[in-house]
Simulated assay, not measured.
Amino acid sequence: MEYTSGAQSWRVVIRRALGGLRPRRRGQRTRGWSVGVPLIGLIAGLLFTTSARTADGTALRDDRRPQLAQLIADERSRVAARQQTADQLNAQVEQDTAHLAQVDQPVKQAREQADSMRQAAGFTALHGPGVTVTLNDSSRRASESDPNGPDNDDLVVHQGDVQAVVNAMWAGGAEAMSIMDIRVISTSAVRCVGNTLLLHGQVFSPPFKITAIGEPTAMHSALESAEGVRQFRDAVADFGLGYTETVERNVTLRAYDGSSDLRSAQVAQ
Rank of each mutant, 00 (worst) to 15 (best):
D261V: 10
L155W: 02
G27I: 06
A69K: 11
R64S: 12
L42K: 07
L223A: 02
A69Y: 07
T252D: 07
E175A: 09
P129L: 11
K209Y: 03
T54A: 12
R254E: 07
V133S: 00
E112Q: 12
A114Y: 02
V184G: 03
P129Y: 06
G214V: 00
D63H: 09
L60T: 01
P38M: 10
P150K: 11
D257L: 07
A114H: 06
G130R: 00
A59F: 07
Q269C: 10
Q202K: 10
L42N: 06
L47W: 10
R249G: 06
D151Y: 09
D261I: 09
G122M: 06
P206Q: 09
D87Y: 06
L47P: 01
R230W: 04
A268G: 08
V93C: 04
T50D: 12
V190H: 03
L71F: 07
G128N: 01
P207W: 08
R140T: 02
I14M: 13
D62P: 04
T124S: 09
R26P: 01
S178N: 09
D153A: 14
A69Q: 13
R263M: 15
R263F: 13
K108Q: 13
S51M: 13
L262A: 14
L135P: 00
D87Q: 12
F48I: 09
A125I: 01
Q102P: 00
R118Y: 01
M169D: 07
F204A: 11
A7T: 13
P206W: 05
S259L: 14
G172K: 01
R233G: 01
P150N: 11
R24V: 06
V165A: 02
D238S: 13
L46F: 08
G27E: 11
R31K: 15
G19R: 15
L241C: 08
Q113K: 14
A268F: 04
T134N: 08
R141E: 05
L155T: 01
V107H: 12
Q202E: 12
A125L: 08
L198Q: 04
